[in-house]
Design a binder for these strands. Structure first.
Lengths: 318, 318
DNA sequence: GCCAAAGTTGCTCAGATGAGCGATAATATC
DNA sequence: GATATTATCGCTCATCTGAGCAACTTTGGC
């Protein structure tokens, strides 16, 4: 397009989008036929001069969702817009809201829903509306936060989700990680615990988040791991944890011994499940999100625009 | 509007603006009539959820221009968009470009154009296209930069503007401010200088910028004023200078004695002129822009979106 | 300078859309 | 609970707009 045409397309766009003039009227003003005006407007759009943003906490980015589905093979992708967000917390809240929306609209409604715990899932539980589903049994799929933390964040998440769906919550009464393998095995042998774990393995759907591998991990906060242990895991390639288990960029368990001492569903069980919803948002979680998506650990990803774009860019530059 | 309708309007907007679906198709997807979809889209717009930006260096903000004209009584207002600008310099360059565009499209073409000097006007001169007008006599209306500066910025601006219009430049061979009133009067008595000043007074149009009152002023850089003098002027209410003369928020000369020693057109002559184009851009110039516009020192203002909004907000909250 | 190829223009026509208007539903008022 | 009032809905119709096409203009190649 010629230089003067580019300028004209901008003038036309101003009159069209800001002044709500018709292409006819613009034609009169700029001394052009209305067809020329139409073409100029089309070229302004094609050149990317017209940026249309939907500014709303519930706004999603459908084109990014589609590209994500196509390039990763995800069953579904929910990408919340970051237009107009001023803080990371706001973005994560939007993502949690979107996850709650997705859960609510899920058909068929899963009778048993396996969930992990964490800040993100807690946020999701708060965003769910009373009566979001008619009776869902919520099962914890990995060991809970220790008691030196604000008691029962994990339990409260599960209970809230279940309660709001007029369902029941089945809690996993176990720490996340045991110091000794023998203790962990003894615990798993307990009939109650074994029952919960079996229920978790047979859930129809899973909802979980993931944590980045750094000192801010909930597993560090809860006292299960030390900062030094995290550093060691990172040195061995860990990018983050899923249901309490640290994985590398290829989705492999970083420390098999540690993994053995971790209570809950195995990564492979997640990989085989037909419906696994991962909720991952935030700038620091791009790496773990990538690991989760690339290695088939989820079939549905709920995330934010920036994380989604990061995933797409990697795909484009292999 | 109800809460669910608001959400629906966002879903509709996503499909309409991001996926280019027709209102009919959206109706099928969301189980609504196409009229309902149309209404939802209209309400999304009305609620400000749809933000349309024209991202282009030459983009203007016509609605703001109109509001400025209406609320200030300016003959014309040119407001450049700040969408997508990353630096103050870029915004100022856009404003200069817009001023050049305005000058080029000006009808009738002024035979004599009085100009001041400064970074902004120099920028305007560079953005003008060769042959922007068929013969314009450009006259300097205030004293030039001193010679210890990069020689001839002021002269070069005038010459460039004139040259590109196949016209002639009449320079004012005088310092901006004299130390002694007597010297200034003697200078003005000189036939050549007097002739230039007379020519300047009779120009058909004026183009000038304005400087904020702080240590970065061109008058300080050029050695005419010290930082202390500026501080003093500020203490006495100065918000900036127009054609070398410091004014307060009410458009009054702050220091009459200093004003007397300043060579060039008087503020009042500017106020009486039928066509005076002020080019003012940048966050620090909001106050001086306000003083210029509120006190009728210009009939046309070329500025940036942020400055324009600042002017409008003051109007709304008197 | 001539011709082919590519690009641009004005136009027809069908599809998309907003304004306006009765009909219907929801809400408030007594 | 009946009625008045308001809001919402589905629709018609006129207008707006984009796709497609033939005519025309420009450009590049020889």
């Amino acid at each position: 397009m010629s230089d003067t045409d580019e300028l004209l397309s901008i003038r036309a766009a101003e009159l069209y989008y800001e002044e709500n003039q018709t292409q006819d009227e613009i034609g009169v003003i700029l001394r052009l036929t209305r067809w020329k005006v139409g073409r100029l407007l089309a070229s302004a759009k094609a050149n990317g001069f017209i940026r249309i943003e939907i500014v709303h906490p519930r706004a999603r980015r459908l084109p990014i969702e589609r590209r994500l589905r196509e390039s990763t093979g995800l069953t579904d992708a929910i990408v919340v817009s970051s237009a107009g967000v001023s803080s990371e917390a706001e973005l994560q809240s939007r993502t949690a809201q979107a996850a709650a929306d997705y859960l609510t609209s899920l058909r068929p409604i899963p009778r048993t829903l396996g969930i992990s715990w964490g800040r993100t899932l807690h946020d999701v539980s708060l965003h769910l509306k009373e009566g979001w589903a008619p009776g869902v049994n919520v099962v914890q799929i990995n060991g809970g936060v220790s008691l030196n933390q604000r008691t029962g964040t994990a339990a409260s998440t599960a209970v809230t989700i279940a309660h709001k769906a007029d369902g029941s919550a089945t809690l996993l009464p176990s720490p996340a990680i045991f110091e000794r393998l023998e203790t962990k095995q003894a615990m798993e042998a307990d009939r109650t615990v074994a029952g919960v774990l079996a229920l978790g393995r047979n859930a129809q759907a899973y909802l979980f988040s993931a944590g980045q591998a750094d000192a801010n991990s909930a597993l560090v906060d809860s006292g299960y791991l030390t900062v030094e242990q995290i550093d060691d895991l990172v040195a061995r390639g860990a990018v983050g944890d899923v249901v309490g288990r640290y994985i590398d960029a290829n989705g492999r368990i970083v420390d098999p011994e540690l993994n053995e001492r971790t209570v809950g569903i195995q990564i492979d069980q997640l990989r085989r499940a037909p419906l696994t919803i991962a909720v991952i948002s935030g700038n620091k979680k791009h790496a773990i999100a990538r690991a989760v998506v690339r290695n088939g650990l989820c079939t549905v990803l709920v995330t934010d625009e920036d994380t989604a774009n990061a995933l797409l860019q990697e795909k484009d530059t292999p």
